[in-house]
Design a binder for these strands. Structure first.
Lengths: 184, 184
DNA sequence: GAGCAATCTTACCAGTGACAAGATTGGAGG
DNA sequence: CCTCCAATCTTGTCACTGGTAAGATTGCTC
């Protein structure tokens, strides 16, 4: 099928769907091509190689991530909640983004989007501690807690320890770790 | 080479070394076999298939993990530090353990070792909150913070935000998140 | 010292990512 | 209109992979 019209997008979506089902490694470019009804090398023109496809996913993921964090940037605590919400609701993106061996981490689009997200995280916890040293520790703590909860949740490690939806339980964990910072 | 003598161990170590270098997906059984000087199907007898090898790594990893946590079980805060120390010093194990799509999570050895580690984590934060509900939140918070810091550190996400060795910086992050629980 | 069971090998298959060379087609410029 | 170019997709091929089947080797037991 020459001139599919929307192949780049369709392959990308198929990759996301496949990643959602079985992780970012358990699918092949050829499988995605078959699903899209094109030859096994059709994606090459759009992504170069498999790493290129994963790089595109990471770049788009960091951009979406930054967007969602930006929406709540004024509330330090809600940035953490948004972090968790993003991981759960955009699982496939998240699983690629934080697995640097999968894609080209220094791709310009990736770098730009990732840096944008990072700045929002840094801004979110600004002014919560007196010294720069403590400031940095607070940022790290918040980032670690949100990221850790999200990772554990996605890996299924919490199925025995937590009941409820991710956002509710995540809020409780964030509150236990960081609530004292919020209240001053 | 018939009757290598120690093939199971050698393949396992080679897999750990390769995982350390390039992640748990970027090596092949055949490559490990070549390194060990045996035919490409020799590992089959010991592990069944590639998933079996990764399952063995996960089982051994959780057992080592439980051992290291056990050594400091009396101090809630030090359990978190030990968690981070394990992730950094046994990176290959850690990266497999928390990637359930890679191995058979319900393998009896895996289940036993993982459950042992889980109990230590639960015990570590016992008595730090009045109600069971808060108790659970504190456990989740501590686990999330340690796990998140370890994951971010291993993925390289912190290279711009933190200087120093993982344990030192990790302590600071844990202190910022959980220090208030320690001091009562 | 015979035979068994554990361990390893050789041979093969389908599936994969990458590459090279070529086919098709929409659209721009004459 | 129509020519031709660049974007897009296809066919063909390669080395490599994981998995399976069948068979070879060898340490150990009795």
């Amino acid at each position: 099928m020459y001139h599919h019209g929307n192949l780049r997008r369709e392959i990308l979506e198929a990759a996301l769907a496949a990643t959602e089902e079985s992780g970012p490694a358990n699918w092949s470019l050829r499988e995605l091509s078959r699903r899209a009804g094109v030859s096994h090398t059709a994606p090459v023109h759009h992504f170069g190689d498999k790493t290129g496809l994963l790089t595109a996913i990471a770049a788009e993921g960091f951009a979406l991530f930054a967007d969602e964090l930006e929406a709540v940037v004024d509330d330090f605590f809600e940035v953490g909640v948004a972090y968790i919400r993003f991981a759960v609701s955009h699982r496939a993106y998240f699983e690629v983004m934080f697995r640097p061996e999968l894609y080209r981490t220094e791709d310009p689009e990736v770098v730009a989007a990732r840096e944008r997200a990072r700045q929002i995280l840094l801004a979110g916890s600004r002014g919560l501690a007196p010294t720069p040293q403590q400031q940095r520790a607070v940022t790290l703590a918040a980032w670690s807690t949100a990221h850790g909860f999200a990772s554990l949740w996605l890996s299924g490690a919490l199925t025995e320890s937590a009941d409820g939806d991710a956002e509710t339980v995540g809020r409780q964990a964030l509150e236990a770790a960081l609530g004292h910072l919020r209240r001053g």
